[in-house]
Amino acid sequence: MLFRQLDYLVALAREQHFARAAQACHVSQPALSEAIRKLEDELDVSLVRRGRSYEGLTPEGERIVVWAQRILADRDSLRSEVDALRTGLNGRLRIGAVPTASGAVAQLTGPFCTQHPLVTVEVIADLRSEDILRQLQNFEIDAGVTYLDRVPADFHQVPMYEERYVLLTDDAYADSLDRRTEATWAEASRLPLCLLSEAMQGRQVLQEVFAEAGLRPTPRVETDSVAALFAHVRTGRWATIVPYAWLNVFGVPNGMRAVPMAGPSRAVPVGLVTLAREPGSVMARALMELARSTEVTTALKHLSGSRPPGSQ
């Protein structure tokens, strides 16, 4: 059995197409197909359902792909460990982030790149919480930044900050709040809202808070992007509720106002997660060590130019 055969099988499971898998592996389609056939012969089991076109993996193939992903991840971790011992960390660090936390990821990537100048970082933003956990388990990313309240015990966790919320409006809607320093959830529910889509955990948190206040908002616009929320409010037709952490990314644009949300309050822990397996990825270990020593809350507070809502 060769690593190359496992690479091809994982690529086929990911791409769901022989030609695309071959292109991703930089080989011809016949070479990829033949390598997978030899793997089937060696394991004495059918891995791929073949018809006139690719029809998916067999149940046995689905199980073997899990093992292949694990073996390839260990191979890559071994190479990274050896490289780190010889010349320091180098390679590619892959981080997934939920939309509301992607702005805070920069508080880790900057210092990480300074400490490890041979490493490049890829940030995959706008992922759902469940997507981050699934991609970690499939070794598609090295670490994730997500909500910690629903992360299973078989993941390492490092808390980074607590997500709190502000009502973001244009000046016309802000005038209806009489320039007060806080807005109620009832007031927010009466505004023309654009919010994250219901599939996103950040939206689910807001729904829980609204429900606690006896409210059920009906947003006219939904999106999976926090940047899109800012863009809609900028038109002057909409209001939204965003995490205060995003103020360090966009600030409060001209003609807009950010008002902290009053009770019922909800401070949701956000942090870094990695697979709890040993020895694990040397990249993930280095990022976890950095996260433990980084005061993300303080950095976000400084960059946004004010205290986080609800802080003392």
Results as ranks from 00 to 15, higher is better:
299 A>Q: 13
80 S>R: 11
162 E>M: 12
293 S>C: 07
37 R>H: 12
157 Q>G: 01
291 A>Q: 10
40 E>F: 02
117 P>D: 07
53 S>P: 01
283 M>S: 06
105 V>S: 04
239 A>G: 09
6 L>C: 03
88 G>C: 06
224 D>Q: 12
136 L>R: 06
187 E>C: 01
179 R>A: 15
106 A>L: 08
182 E>K: 12
105 V>F: 01
173 Y>N: 03
271 G>F: 06
201 Q>P: 00
46 S>V: 14
178 D>L: 14
311 S>P: 03
151 V>E: 07
56 G>S: 06
98 V>Y: 01
58 T>Y: 00
6 L>W: 15
23 Q>A: 14
234 R>H: 08
122 E>R: 05
259 V>H: 03
297 T>A: 15
89 L>E: 09
77 S>Y: 10
207 Q>C: 10
168 L>E: 12
296 V>A: 10
231 A>L: 00
255 G>Y: 03
95 I>E: 09
59 P>G: 03
267 A>G: 10
23 Q>F: 12
306 S>I: 03
258 A>T: 02
237 R>P: 00
226 V>W: 01
77 S>T: 10
32 L>F: 07
130 E>L: 04
222 E>R: 12
19 A>T: 15
231 A>M: 01
155 F>G: 04
155 F>S: 02
214 G>S: 00
212 E>R: 12
269 P>I: 04
112 F>C: 02
289 E>Q: 13
196 L>S: 05
95 I>D: 07
85 L>K: 09
74 D>Y: 04
263 G>P: 05
226 V>F: 00
101 A>W: 02
94 R>P: 02
5 Q>D: 15
276 A>K: 14
85 L>W: 08
169 T>N: 08
98 V>G: 00
173 Y>K: 12
205 V>A: 05
192 P>C: 06
177 L>T: 08
13 A>W: 04
191 L>T: 09
231 A>N: 12
157 Q>L: 10
109 T>G: 03
127 L>I: 00
173 Y>V: 02
296 V>C: 03
